[in-house]
Computed example of a mutant assay.
Amino acid sequence: MKNLKISHRQILILIVVSAFFLVSMSVCGAEESTSLQKSPFVNVEILDPKYDHVYETEMVKNGSEVSIKVVLTNFSREIEKSTLSFYSELEKSGGHISMDGEKEALKSDGSYSVEHKKVEKEVMVSWSGTAPEVRKQETFILLNITQETTEGKYMVVAIKGDVSSEIINDALNARYIAKEEIEKANRTIANATKAGIDVEEAKTNLALANVHLNNSQERYNAGKPGDALEEAKKASASAKVAEEKARATIGFTKYSRNTILVAVVVIAIVAFVFWYKMRERKRGIY
């Protein structure tokens, strides 16, 4: 019975290690392919990829269907044959390759051999899949095609896309706005401090704004865009209050200083007039 338990444990370890090895190989393969030299043996044209956009941006909406068409032409006659390999991080991805009326199914990590002299016009690659569900904006490989020849391995095309959602985009925009509001408050408070004006209340609100901004970043990193959005809004609100308080204090201080200055001038004028009249009286004018 003891040996049986050990055997099960060993099998489990082998499964985990094998899975880790396969994932590592897949990631390494993707990184390697993006650093390859562009293929000189084929021309590429990417037809307009189709997917749901996040607002009016070029970002891919998470969970949306993505379809891509790539046209390969002018296969070099200098080499007889090459192997095209396909890789995608889209979910349930796959497609087909068409050449001279013949069509063959493709899948991620799959390959297809092309005899260059047999390509009369073009090779069409059609690819589709589902954009991953994400909780923060991430970049994914929509489709990589590499070409292996007797000369070596080359990059044919690397199509990447930023996958996001409306709530993620809102959170990122809100954080950007909050940073601008904090910078504005910072400048106003710094100018006040430099002028010797006490703006402690404004500084307190500014500190609170930075706390909310940090909270927003933490929530975003944790994959909670909704919470990140709310914290970013609070950061903006606190920063605006800080800036308004600083400006109000500056305005009040300037008004007070001007009032005091006017009062001093008035007193000085009255004193001068009084002194002048007393002086003239002594001279016997009055």
Rank of each mutant, 00 (worst) to 15 (best):
N3T: 13
A246N: 02
E89T: 02
D170L: 10
G95M: 03
E56L: 09
V199N: 01
I145M: 05
V134N: 03
E231T: 05
E91T: 09
T150R: 05
N144S: 14
E183Y: 11
M278A: 11
T139L: 14
K233M: 13
R247H: 02
T193R: 11
V60P: 01
L72K: 00
F75D: 00
S108T: 11
K194N: 11
H8T: 13
R187V: 06
P225L: 03
A19E: 09
V66S: 04
V156R: 00
K107V: 11
Y112E: 04
N210S: 09
T149F: 03
E180F: 09
V123D: 02
G95P: 02
A222T: 01
L47H: 10
S98D: 08
E243M: 07
I182G: 00
G223W: 07
R247M: 02
V27W: 07
T146R: 02
R219N: 04
E65Q: 11
I15N: 07
V262I: 13
I13V: 06
E122F: 01
A222D: 12
A174P: 02
S165C: 13
S24V: 12
I267R: 02
E280A: 07
M155P: 01
N62S: 15
K107N: 14
S98T: 11
S128N: 14
Y112F: 09
I250H: 03
E58K: 04
K160C: 05
K240Y: 04
F252G: 05
L14N: 03
